[in-house]
Design a protein around this nucleic acid. Structure first.
Lengths: 375, 375
DNA sequence: ATGAAAGCGCTAACAG
DNA sequence: CTGTTAGCGCTTTCAT
């Protein structure tokens, strides 16, 4: 407490015990007499003791900090994802450290590999895959530290992964448009991908396209380049809305409208599309029905309210934290065992058992039918 | 490099220098021969050396980490604020650590005072005041660490503060409604506060009310309890919209509508109000004009697009970082001087000079006139 | 149930 | 310009 900083030593002295006993008492470790613990806690309280985490981390190699890596903070999707992950992390007694890559693959890779914090400051990392390239040697990039991938979409995952219900969700969205009577459905997202090439896609967008095209083909509707419009965010969504609107107006009422429904590969784009259609004098849902996917909060307040596929981000966060805490615990026991076993050696092989294999989970979703599809 | 972990020692050994020289070389400190530095850098690269920040922090007491405290991640306002602050922090070579308090004053206070990281892990803190009580002894809570308050709204600031243009922005918003022809303007926000009591308010909402009421009174329009509707977010905004709509419909077209304009104390509420008015069959802007304040991204994509007061969050972030880096540098030099001066004592008084006084800045804004006010 | 010793990896301070 | 010494505050290990 010399410099206004109370150290463990000070607390121990005030309680009349050794630093080690004070440490054990403060951490609630077993094997400390109740009366001793009480003395220590009282002293700590009185001296306003705060543990020095840098010292603790340096010695123990553990921080309880989870590194969360996403593209950005300011989007309806990411802000919700980050909030779910950060809240779940805190609920488990861990500390979330959120980093944004601003959509730079370099930044994402550096966050995982060259970040000076990673080695010592983080117990584990949760990264949203989009922005990384596909099929990176993630486990290696991460040097074996506990890692969970969000929406990695790999067919054979190399690390623990929590996926969005991309294919099923998109299929449900398009089926909903069909049930609402749509027969000419446009898709707003990225590039057109021929159906055959969708068999082994490993991206979120590819899977959504697979689900959407599947629903179209099952219903005997067209899936080809003519129904595709580029637009992955609101700005491009507006342009897509204009293009779709122009196509509708060019044909005119008489000969049947070319589009009466739009599936957007994310909500953000859907808001833009609605806006763009409105700019052309087309009404949603009367003239064209629109559905998104993601379930961002804003869809409940927009005009019209947005039909969407709501994904369960709280469930996602629980899955991700289950996976990461399991890895962390596992690593601690293995390390502990390895250290005390010394050079037994033979054990090293058997640790690569089933529990080392990458886990995979897919989160749930539900269709929210709102005004934009005539609900 | 024994355990897969390369230490500074290893690098120094490989480069044939002492650890201290290696450290200086890696940190780009002056006073290292260029050839020596090159050797060290090469060795570090070859051995894939990464500094152990916990050790560095423990010894030096500096981390380059800035603690950013906000209410939550998932709102259009906070996600934008966090992104601006995090990006500006990174641009200055510092590391942002964002924490959410979930609107709990306890959590906010703990983040500042009892957070075990604060003492050792953070070089400074930037906190958005809302959620803290008013007029807390912030400087004391923070134990003298560098601290910047966002929108503290204190008349006589106790710490460095960057304020929003609450009063002027609200005034400009209401003036805009008046210019658009509105004569019966409702206010959606918190509780009604009599004009007299607004003289010395120290909250964001109070200042906005002062600006709004000032504009109304200047134009000879009413400011009283009958024009106030409760609603600080979209959910309550919808209810406010319903109430305003009901009031309009109750009176009927003939006797003149009671409300033809709505000023919302934030954008979030404005989206709800528009939604609520629509539920009652009222059109924005034809029947009622609506304006918000904050300038959240979504206003550009909604239907109708939202007129708002756009505040310059990037400027805010620059101001905040200017203030915090100044405090950090100042603290370092003072500490350094103090240490070498030994027990000179007399100097202690003179360090409390003008540069110790709390700084205050107010960020800029501009009116964005969009569809919701008939633009 | 408690304590003593040792040292995590780095950098401030000073010596050369 | 470079090296040596010391120690940040804690926790692991081992002894009592």
């Amino acid at each position: 407490m010399a410099n206004g900083k109370t150290t463990l030593r000070d607390v121990a002295a005030a309680a009349g015990v050794s630093p080690m006993t004070a440490s054990n008492a403060l951490h609630g470790k077993a094997g400390v007499k109740e009366s001793t613990r009480a003395k220590v806690l009282a002293a700590a309280e009185r001296l306003d003791y705060r543990i020095n985490l840098t010292a603790s981390m340096l010695k123990s190699g553990r921080s309880n900090i989870i590194h969360i890596i996403v593209n950005e903070f300011d989007s309806p999707f990411y802000s919700k994802l980050v909030q779910a992950l950060a809240t779940a992390t805190t609920e488990r007694g861990l500390t979330p450290f959120v980093e944004q890559t601003r959509y730079s693959p370099t930044a994402a890779e550096r966050a995982l590999t060259r970040n000076p914090f990673s080695d010592q400051l983080f117990d584990g990392e949760i990264i949203h895959a989009s922005g990384l390239g596909t099929n990176l040697p993630l486990a290696r990039m991460n040097a074996g530290r506990p890692l969970v991938l969000i929406d990695g979409c790999e067919e054979t995952p190399s690390v623990d992964t929590v996926n969005f219900p991309n294919e099923d969700g998109a299929r449900a969205a398009v089926q909903h448009l069909i049930e609402r009577g749509c027969r000419h459905i446009a898709i707003v997202g990225g590039e057109f991908v021929p159906r055959a090439e969708l068999a082994h896609v490993e991206t979120s967008y590819g899977l959504r396209l697979r689900g959407a095209s599947g629903a179209l083909l099952d219903a005997g509707l067209a899936y080809d380049e003519s129904i595709m419009f580029y637009g992955y965010n609101s700005d491009y969504g507006i342009k897509a809305g204009h293009a779709i609107g122009d196509a509708i107006l060019a044909v005119g009422e008489s000969s049947g409208r070319p589009f009466d429904g739009v599936f957007c590969a994310n909500d953000y784009a859907a808001f833009g599309v609605i806006r763009g259609l409105k700019d052309r004098g087309l009404r949603v849902p009367d003239d064209v029905k629109v559905i998104g996917i993601d379930g961002t909060s804003f869809g409940a307040y927009s005009t019209p309210t947005l039909s969407t596929i709501q994904v369960d981000l709280d469930q996602l966060a629980q899955f991700a934290l289950d996976m990461i805490t399991r890895r962390i615990e596992r690593r601690n026991t293995v390390n502990g065992a390895g250290a005390s076993t010394g050079s037994a050696g033979a054990d090293t092989g058997s640790v690569a058992d089933a529990s080392d294999q990458p886990t995979r989970a897919t989160i749930g979703y539900r269709l929210i039918a709102r005004e934009s599809t005539g609900a």
